[in-house]
Amino acid sequence: MSTAKKKPPINARAKQKEQVNKKALIWVGVAFGIVVIAMAVLLIVTS
């Protein structure tokens, strides 16, 4: 007899979503930081 596959608990799914959100926030923050640094370098070089 085959056993039915158990679904993961709701708490595990919520934790995975939180990790994805944290990674997305980190990526957005890094991208924003790179843009700010690039603009600062361009302002220093052109002045």
Rank of each mutant, 00 (worst) to 15 (best):
A12F: 08
A40M: 07
K15R: 11
A31D: 00
N11L: 14
A24P: 01
P9R: 04
G33E: 02
L43R: 08
I26A: 12
L42G: 09
A24C: 05
L42C: 10
N11G: 15
K6G: 07
T46I: 12
T46D: 08
V30I: 02
Q16L: 10
F32G: 13
N11M: 14
W27M: 13
G29L: 00
G29D: 00
W27D: 09
E18I: 10
V41H: 02
V30Y: 00
R13G: 04
V35W: 00
N11I: 15
K15T: 06
A40S: 07
K15Q: 07
A38L: 03
V35E: 01
K7D: 09
V28H: 06
A4Q: 11
K23I: 04
A38K: 03
L25R: 13
A24M: 06
L25N: 10
K23D: 03
K7W: 04
I37P: 04
L43G: 06
K7A: 05
V35N: 03
K5W: 13
M39I: 11
P8H: 05
I44T: 09
T3G: 13
G33C: 02
Q19N: 11
I44C: 09
M1K: 15
V28Q: 06
A31R: 00
I10E: 09
I34Q: 04
N21I: 12
P8S: 03
L25Y: 07
K15N: 08
L25M: 14
N21G: 12
V36I: 02
F32I: 15
K6Y: 06
I10Y: 07
K23A: 07
V30N: 00
L43K: 05
I10R: 08
V41P: 01
I44L: 15
V36N: 01
A4L: 14
V45A: 03
G29Y: 00
M1E: 11
A38S: 03
F32W: 12
G33N: 01
V36H: 00
M1D: 07
I26K: 14
A38N: 02
A38D: 02
Q16F: 08
E18S: 10
I26Q: 12
T3E: 13
A38E: 03
V30H: 00
I26W: 13
A4D: 11
L43C: 08
M1N: 07
P8F: 06
K17Y: 12
V35C: 02
K7N: 06
W27H: 11
R13M: 05
E18F: 11
V30C: 00
L25Q: 13
T46N: 13
V45E: 03
G33S: 03
V35S: 03
K5T: 10
K17P: 09
T46Q: 09
S47W: 15
V45M: 03
K23F: 05
M39W: 07
W27Y: 12
